[in-house]
Simulated assay, not measured.
Amino acid sequence: MADMSQVLTLWKKTTALPLGKQLFSFAFSQKAPYFATVRPRFVELRPNYAELVVPKRRAVHNHIKTLHVIALCNGLEAAMGALAESTCPPDKRWIPKGMEVAYPAKASSDITCIAETDPAAWTSDNPDVRVSVKGVRDDGTVVIEGEIRLWVTPKPQR
């Protein structure tokens, strides 16, 4: 990638500061305010990889007092969005076109949301880029897993 994205630049600048990951997490949530509903705490960000934590708190509980699956999907989409912004070549743009998830276990703790892609997918002529996503409980149990499909195309000429 020739040019570093604004998101990756912000990550590198803020994480060099005390409380930098918290600052980045807040700033990222302001850009897409819906993400703020799950209060994501970014842990790591680099091309093809993003990791954040969605804290277990009452505001995102379901009727059985675990994290609601839609809150988890929001966390996965936030991780995917940060990954896509940090990975997409500067001459291309991306948009999500679908998400499929399964939730094999209860989300009874904070959940670490991870998004990963194959680096070759971003330089291929195929506009369909698949992002693997999963959410992991504190004890290592996967509570949600799936794929977010992106449509990655050249930016229009101006």
Rank of each mutant, 00 (worst) to 15 (best):
K106S: 15
P55I: 07
L19Q: 09
A16G: 06
L67S: 07
A84P: 01
L23G: 01
L72Y: 10
T117K: 00
S5C: 10
S124M: 08
A50E: 06
M80G: 04
H68W: 13
V43Y: 10
V69M: 08
L19W: 13
E77K: 06
K97Y: 09
G81Q: 07
R137P: 04
H68A: 15
T9M: 11
V136E: 12
D138L: 14
M4I: 15
I64S: 10
S5G: 13
H63K: 06
S124I: 07
F28A: 15
Q157L: 15
F28I: 12
M80V: 13
C88A: 10
R58P: 01
T153M: 14
A59S: 15
L45T: 04
V38Q: 02
D110G: 02
P18A: 04
K12Q: 15
F35Q: 01
V133W: 10
T9Y: 10
Q6E: 15
L72S: 08
A27E: 09
M4K: 15
C73V: 14
K31H: 10
C73P: 09
S86M: 03
K92E: 12
K134I: 05
L52T: 00
M1W: 09
K92M: 11
S29T: 13
G98A: 03
A121N: 03
M80A: 11
T37E: 13
V142G: 05
K13C: 14
S124N: 14
T15C: 02
L45R: 00
V60M: 02
E147N: 04
A79N: 01
R46H: 14
M4F: 09
V143E: 06
K134D: 11
V131E: 05
V7D: 09
E85N: 00
V131C: 04
M99S: 01
